[in-house]
Design a protein around this nucleic acid. Structure first.
Lengths: 250, 250
DNA sequence: AAGTGGTCTAGACCACTTA
DNA sequence: AAGTGGTCTAGACCACTTG
C-alpha cells in the first residue's frame, strides 16, 4: 500500500533520509548520536524493513552515518588531520633529520606498520617518469589515534638507490630524502597531483573505511635541482581524516 | 535457499560485484560498455531481484558504473580536467587580463551560468577570516563539454569592494583579482585547503552527479602582501572531473 | 510491446552487540 | 534474551527507454 503513488513527491525512503539528514546537519543529532533503527522506522512510518534499510543506506553512503552491527546506526564523527603540502617539505624539515610526518600531527601519536621494501619491475606510468624499468618500492601504512589513515607507496630508480639505506627498512635520520641528498640527488622541486574517488575493496580493508568514505590519492613526484625525477610517491588517504593545505604566491 | 550459509565466503551479491569489478578494472569491460542487467544476473546466478540490484549497487556506489533508466547499467567514463594550483594563479595570468580558467581547459570550451551577486551577512567562519561582518558574495557554476563540473562561491569584505565592479555581474578584464589590484589590494599569497567527501543532495543536483561520485571542496584564501585576507573562495568540484596539481620547492 | 531500472511489501534466517 | 543490522527470497507495480 504505497501512500499516494501518483504524486510528484520523492519516494518514501528519500523523504525519511532527508528528514534524518536535516536533523544531523542542523545539529539536532550530534556526533555519535544514535539514529532511529530499522524497527523504529518501520513502526513510525508503517513501511517494510527493506524500505527502512534503504533510507538509512542513503545516509550511510553519504558518509553522514555509520552502521554498527547489533547495535545501531550512529552519526559519524570527524576530526581531520591538517596536512601541509608546501611547508612540510621545506628543506629544513628533513635537512635536520626530522620525519616529515611530525609537522602534521602536532603531537598526536602516529604509527607505521606493514612496511615492505622490494625491488620490482616498474609500473608503466612510474617507469616513464623515473626513466627506469627496475625500481625499489617502499610500501607502508600510517595510523593516527590507533586508526589507519594513509597508505603510501614510494618508487625509486633501482640504479640510483641500489646498495643505499633506501633499500633497507630503516633509512636512517632524515629518511629517504636525506639519503637522496647523500647521493647528491637532493629533491629540490615537487609536484603533487590530487584526485578523489571511491575506494576499492582492498583500500576499504586496509584503511578500515566505513561506507560513504572517499579516498584522496596524492601522487607526488620529487625532482632534483637538475630536473631529474628521483621519487614517485603515491599516497592513498582516508578522505574523512584529512585536510590538505597548499600555500603559494601570486 | 542460500547456497552454503555456514561457509566463510563473502555473500553472493559481493561475489557477483567482485567479478564485475574485476572485468571492469582488467579492461574486459570498457568505458561505456553495458553490464549484465538485473534480469541477466537473476537468471545467471539464480538469485532474487533484490540481490541482483544489491550487486549492481555496489559498483554504482563505487563510481565504477552508472545506471540508465529503462536502458541498463554501464561502465562509467572518465576524462578529468587538470587544474594547476600554483601556476594558474601566477600574477602574469590575471595581470594581463586573462581569466584564470583559461589555463586549465586548454582550449576545451567552458561556460559559466547561474551567476548571482549579492551583499549578505557573512557566515561565521568567513567573517572571522575576512574580519568583516558584511560581505559581497559571488556565486556561479562552471561547465566543460556541456557538463557542470564546479560550483564556486567567492566572498569579499563589503567595506573593501563596495562600489567597485566586484559587486557587478561583469567584473571587467582580469576579473576580481585585477580589480582588487586597482584598489591597491592585489593578492600576493594564497592558501588552498582541500577536502573530499560525499556530496549533499543539492550538490548532486547542481553538478548532475551520478551515485558514487565524491566532491572535492577547495577553500582558497587570498592575502595581500601586507597579510590581509581579501577573498575567500569555496569551490565544490565534481571529483571525477578533476586532477588538482600543485608545484612547490623544497 | 518488451525490457530495464526504481520503489515497495512481507516475510525469513543469520551474526553480532548489549544488557 | 532481546534487539540490532546483514543477507536473501518471491512476489508486485511503476516510469522510462529502446526497437
Amino acid at each position: 500500500m504505497s501512500e499516494s503513488p501518483v504524486s510528484n513527491e520523492p519516494p518514501i525512503y528519500r523523504r525519511i533520509a532527508d528528514g534524518l539528514r536535516a536533523a544531523i546537519l542542523s545539529g539536532e543529532l550530534r556526533d555519535g548520536d544514535r539514529l532511529p533503527g530499522e524497527n523504529a522506522l518501520m513502526a513510525e512510518y508503517g513501511i517494510a524493513r527493506a524500505t527502512a534499510r534503504q533510507a538509512l543506506s542513503v545516509l550511510i553512503n553519504e558518509g553522514l552515518a555509520v552502521p554498527k552491527r547489533g547495535s545501531g546506526v550512529y552519526v559519524r564523527r570527524f576530526k581531520p588531520i591538517r596536512r601541509h603540502g608546501s611547508r612540510r617539505l621545506a628543506r629544513d624539515q628533513w635537512g635536520r633529520g626530522q620525519a616529515i610526518w611530525d609537522s602534521d600531527t602536532r603531537g598526536r601519536p602516529y604509527t607505521v606498520d606493514g612496511l615492505r621494501v622490494a625491488r620490482e619491475p616498474a609500473p608503466d606510468d612510474v617507469a616513464a617518469i623515473l626513466a627506469a624499468s627496475e625500481i625499489w618500492v617502499r610500501r607502508r601504512r600510517y595510523s593516527v589515534d590507533e586508526r589507519p589513515v594513509q597508505l603510501a607507496t614510494s618508487y625509486f630508480p633501482a640504479d640510483l638507490v641500489e646498495g643505499t639505506p633506501i633499500t633497507l627498512p630503516d633509512t636512517g635520520p632524515g629518511g629517504v630524502y636525506a639519503r637522496l641528498g647523500d647521493l647528491g640527488q637532493a629533491p629540490a622541486h615537487f609536484t603533487e597531483e590530487v584526485q578523489a574517488r571511491m575506494p576499492q575493496p582492498e583500500e576499504v580493508t586496509a584503511l578500515e573505511l566505513p561506507a560513504g568514505t572517499p579516498v584522496v590519492v596524492v601522487r607526488r613526484t620529487a625532482y632534483t635541482a637538475g630536473g631529474t625525477a628521483v621519487e614517485v610517491n603515491i599516497m592513498t588517504l582516508d578522505a574523512a581524516s584529512y585536510v590538505l593545505q597548499y600555500d603559494f604566491d601570486a
